[in-house]
């Protein structure tokens, strides 16, 4: 059975903010369908009453003292920015034009 169609892959890719080309969709869709079919085998395991494990360590709410400590300067924080202006990250428009 096909788990994942080419359209599904295109949709999920957009949810993940990856604009796949047609060639990439052709290549990845078949592979992803095969992989999704294969990982689906975990549903063969009867695990209704088993608690989920999100993490190997029994840690909860690790906190630290709320104290100011040394951090990056604005220049350091902006050093890798694709574009910056006035000590801020400069980004493309975030609203639709209309």
């Amino acid at each position: 059975m096909s788990a994942l169609s080419r359209d599904d892959v295109a949709h999920v890719a957009m949810l993940a903010r990856i604009q796949l080309t047609d060639d990439e969709l052709d290549r990845l869709a078949g592979q992803l369908d095969q992989i999704v079919g294969w990982v689906g085998q975990i549903n063969e395991v009867a695990a209704q009453d088993v608690p989920p494990m999100s993490h190997p360590l029994p840690l909860t709410n690790v906190t630290r003292a709320d104290e100011v400590r040394p951090s990056l300067t604005p220049e350091q924080a902006l050093a890798g920015a694709p574009a910056s202006a006035q000590q801020r990250f400069s980004v493309p428009r975030i609203l639709d034009e209309e």
Partner: peptide, 8 residues
Amino acid sequence: QAQKVRTL
């Protein structure tokens, strides 16, 4: 389901 299998 994967997280449950992880427990097992």
